[in-house]
Amino acid sequence: MTTASPLPEAFPFDGIVFDLDGTLIDSVPDLALALNAMLDEEGLPRVRHEQVPAFVGQGARVLVTKAMAAVGRPIAEGAAGAAELDRLHDRFVVLYEEKPVVGTRTYDGAEAALRDLHARGVRLGVCTNKPHGPTLGVMEALGLAPLFTAVVGGGLIPEKKPDPAPLLLTLEKMGVAPGRAALVGDTPYDVGAARAAGVPVVMVDFGYSPVPPAEAGADVLISSYAELPAAFARLAAVAKPA
């Protein structure tokens, strides 16, 4: 298993915020399980596992909307469509919360990197568009929750990444100024939120980005958590934290 290399002695940030799905965890197996259970109940075809990463990143409503379009029953516009989306979204969330970690796993080196940062006294946060309740459940089940100072999931406030509001709220709850923080994510939504909040950003290239990761505009791109310490050193030069 790949592990993170030691962090530099003079760590340049007070807090690090992580996205969750596609960044710290591979959750596609359980998202697909819940989606297909929902589709079974609707008498619709199932989605294939390899389709699901393209649905992830903008929250559960978008995930359900994309899944419905993929199986040939797109959500209609207007009040009737909105009501149907509400119903399907709520049912998906219930099904997902019932079995959130059957196949979900942390990426190689992710937990070791988190524990290194936590042991050093760096405050950690999660900022995700994933619904807040399932986010907490998954983190508890994987044993990650005690490492984090703040968790902000989808629905806690109306805005979602790439709006900076969820990231700024996460930093506020962490007690860390944007100029003393960095974000680690996997999609352009993470990059957009970081840019708008004035926070430097590392992007992993193994997540669920809908565009080629190298084209998403992150400050640093990494392929494994072993590269994270060097990425933070490079970010320090970009951010020049006060």
Rank of each mutant, 00 (worst) to 15 (best):
R195G: 03
Y225K: 02
K161A: 06
R87M: 05
V101N: 13
A60N: 01
A237Y: 05
P45W: 03
L136R: 14
T187G: 10
A150Y: 03
A230Q: 14
A230C: 00
P212D: 14
M174R: 07
A233H: 04
D21A: 00
T106K: 04
F55T: 13
V64L: 04
P6S: 03
V94S: 09
A165N: 05
G143A: 06
G15K: 05
P188G: 13
F232A: 09
G125I: 12
P210Q: 12
E159H: 07
V211R: 14
P74L: 06
T128W: 08
R234W: 05
P8L: 04
E84M: 08
P210R: 13
L144E: 02
A110C: 11
V94C: 03
A218L: 11
Q58S: 14
P100T: 05
F18R: 00
C127E: 06
T23H: 07
V152M: 05
A119P: 02
G185A: 09
P241F: 07
V126C: 11
L235Q: 13
A182E: 10
L171C: 03
A194F: 03
N129F: 04
A113Q: 01
V220Y: 07
F206G: 01
L147R: 02
L124V: 12
D116C: 09
R195S: 08
A70T: 01
V122F: 12
A141F: 00
E41Y: 02
V71G: 06
A119W: 00
T187W: 06
G81D: 03
R46D: 08
G57M: 05
V199I: 15
D26P: 02
A231P: 07
L85N: 02
Y96R: 03
D116N: 08
L31F: 13
V56D: 00
V122I: 15
F148W: 04
E159C: 00
I222H: 11
L95W: 04
H132L: 00
V56F: 00
A193V: 10
F13N: 04
L117D: 02
T104I: 04
L85Y: 00
V220L: 06
A233T: 15
V191G: 07
R234Q: 15
L33M: 12
V220M: 05
P53F: 00
V28K: 12
G22R: 08
